[in-house]
C-alpha cells in the first residue's frame, strides 16, 4: 500500500521529497502517469501529489521575465501567454495540447519532465532558452537550462527526489521578438504531434527578419534547432513562399520520408502566423 504525500507548501514539498525512493512516483497532472500506472500495474511505495502546493501553479509575467510554475496547466498557460508576441509560441503550444480536458489537467512540468519526443512544450522552451528551477530533498534548489533537463532518451536528468518548481524565461533577451508554434498531427485538434515547429523572429519595422530562431520537435528524442532555416530567414521577410526552401533544411534530420516532405507545409503554416 502506498503512502501518499500531498504537501501544501514548497517547504513541505522539500520535506516530502526526502522520502522518495526508486519505487516512488511523483504525480503532477496525471494525464500520462495514470496510464502508465495502470498499464504497468505499478504499486509505488510513495505517491507524491504536487497538486496541493498553490505556489507551483503561479504564472508571473513581468516585462523582464516569465515565471511559470511547474503545475501550471496548459489551459492556464495558454490564457496567460496568448497575445504576448514573444511568448506566443508557448501559448500556441499549450493551447494545442490534447483536448480541453487534457489542457485542464496536463502541466508544463509534467510535459517537460516526462519528455516524450512528441511533447509540444519542450521545443518552445528550447526556443525561448527557458531555465528550469529544480528543488531536491530538504529544499535544495538549483537552476539548469531546459536543454540540460532532457536526457536525450525521452527521459529527464532529475536526480532521485528532485522536482521542477518552475520555468523561467528571460524576456529581455526577446525584446521585440514574435514567436509562434505550429504542429502537424493526424487531425486538426486533439492529436499527437508528428512535427512541432517553434519559431521566433526579430523583425525590423519593414518586416525584414533581423534574427531568427527555429526549433523543431517530434522528430528526434529531443527538440533540435535548425540553424540552416534560421540562416534562410535572416535578411528576408517572412514570406510564405520561403517554405519550400525551408523545408529542404529538414533533409537528413529524419528518416521518415513523410515528415521530410511535410516539413514545408508546417513551415508555411508557421510563416503565415507572422503576416502583418
Amino acid at each position: 500500500m502506498s503512502t501518499c504525500y500531498i504537501p501544501k507548501t514548497v517547504e513541505e514539498l522539500g520535506g516530502a521529497l526526502g522520502h522518495l525512493t526508486e519505487d516512488s512516483l511523483i504525480l503532477a497532472g496525471g494525464t500520462d502517469l495514470v496510464l502508465h500506472l495502470r498499464a504497468e500495474h505499478l504499486q509505488p511505495d510513495v505517491l507524491l501529489s504536487l497538486c496541493g502546493v498553490p505556489q507551483l501553479r503561479i504564472i508571473e509575467i513581468t516585462s523582464e521575465q516569465a515565471s511559470i510554475g511547474a503545475m501550471a496547466t496548459m489551459a492556464e498557460i495558454h490564457k496567460a501567454m496568448d497575445g504576448l508576441p514573444d511568448l506566443q509560441a508557448l501559448a500556441d503550444a499549450a493551447g494545442g495540447v490534447g483536448s480541453p480536458q487534457i489542457r485542464n489537467k496536463g502541466t508544463i512540468g509534467g510535459n517537460a519532465a516526462n519528455a516524450s519526443a512528441a511533447a509540444d512544450l519542450p521545443p518552445v522552451l528550447w526556443l525561448l532558452n527557458a531555465q528550469a528551477e529544480i528543488m531536491g530533498p530538504g529544499g535544495v534548489r538549483r537552476t539548469i537550462s531546459v536543454q540540460e533537463l532532457a536526457d536525450g532518451h525521452q527521459g529527464n536528468t532529475l536526480a532521485l527526489g528532485e522536482v521542477v518548481l518552475r520555468f523561467l524565461i528571460d524576456r529581455t533577451a526577446f525584446t521585440g521578438w514574435r514567436s509562434a508554434f505550429v504542429k502537424l498531427g493526424h487531425r486538426s485538434q486533439v492529436t499527437i504531434s508528428r512535427i512541432g515547429m517553434a519559431m521566433a523572429l526579430l523583425q525590423a519595422a519593414d518586416g525584414t527578419i533581423q534574427d531568427a530562431r527555429v526549433v523543431a520537435g517530434a522528430i528526434k528524442p529531443v527538440p533540435f534547432p535548425l540553424p540552416a532555416a534560421e540562416a534562410i530567414l535572416r535578411g528576408k521577410r517572412p514570406d510564405p513562399g520561403l517554405a519550400v526552401e525551408l523545408g529542404e533544411t529538414f533533409k537528413g534530420n529524419t528518416r521518415r520520408v513523410y515528415k521530410e516532405n511535410a516539413a514545408k507545409g508546417v513551415f508555411q503554416d508557421t510563416l503565415l502566423r507572422f503576416q502583418p
Partner: peptide, 21 residues
C-alpha cells in the same frame, strides 16, 4: 468520463484520489 473539477472539464479516468483533496 468527463466531469467538472472546480468547474473545469477533466477526464475522471485520468484523475486520482491523490488529486482531489
Amino acid at each position: 468520463c468527463t466531469v467538472l473539477l472546480d468547474d473545469l472539464a477533466v477526464h475522471s479516468c485520468l484523475t486520482l484520489a491523490a488529486q482531489l483533496q
